[in-house]
């Protein structure tokens, strides 16, 4: 029997090379009433000054902003980790940022976000790895899966850079391998019909 009350509470997304267009494809497909908040790490050069959030906000119906400390992770919002900061989720569903050591040569690091989100949201989290040219996020996918969350990788054959989704898939902890438009459709379906 399905649990009728089950609903995902948040989505975390990690991507690097090619991420801009992949994020645009997914976020622009989401309707304004999309209720699950999204937390996004895109590896970037350190001085890119909010460009990504601004660009995605202009091309999406949902609200996209660069994350600030203490931001409340509320429905209808997408938060982008600022360049040069790790983004983490606190127990009270707020965002914290750090400038701690790079992980997987990256700050922000996808693993840092995914691990902290998996702790807080447990089985009510969706983890998504998109195009990218390194293995950041694989460990985070393992954590999300261990906590009972739903894990998705972009089909490497359709990714601008196949390594990141392929490395995630290689952990054997990815539930679904999908094209970008399929990912968007699945997220919308899960949002509209939580018991699916």
């Amino acid at each position: 029997m399905k649990e009728q009350s089950f609903k995902y509470e948040a989505i975390v997304i990690g991507t690097s090379a090619g991420g801009l267009m992949a994020l645009k494809t997914i976020l622009s497909a989401l309707p304004a009433h999309f209720s699950m908040p999204l937390l996004i790490v895109q590896h970037l050069a350190p001085r890119s000054e909010g460009f990504l959030a601004h660009y995605l906000n202009n091309t999406s119906a949902i609200h996209v902003k660069e994350a600030s400390p203490y931001d409340m992770i509320l429905a209808g919002n997408a938060f982008i980790a600022p360049p040069n900061y790790h983004m983490l989720v606190e127990n009270d569903r707020t965002i914290s940022l750090t400038v701690s050591q790079k992980e997987n040569y990256a700050r922000p690091s996808i693993n840092v976000l995914f691990d902290s989100a998996a702790r807080v949201y447990k089985e009510k989290l969706i983890g998504l790895i998109l195009t990218g040219a390194n293995n950041d996020g694989s460990q985070g996918i393992v954590q999300i899966k261990a906590a009972g969350g739903l894990t998705i990788a972009q089909d490497p054959q359709t990714a601008e850079a196949a390594i990141m989704p392929q490395m995630a898939i290689n952990t054997n902890c990815v539930d679904k391998v999908l094209k970008l438009n399929e990912i968007a459709n699945l997220l919308i379906a899960l949002d509209d019909n939580p018991t699916q």
Binding site: L88, V89, E90, N91, S96, T98, S100, V112, D115, S116, R119, V120
Partner: peptide
């Protein structure tokens, strides 16, 4: 301190 970071460390 914010706990997420402390736990990670």
């Amino acid at each position: 301190y914010n706990k997420a970071h402390i736990i990670r460390r």
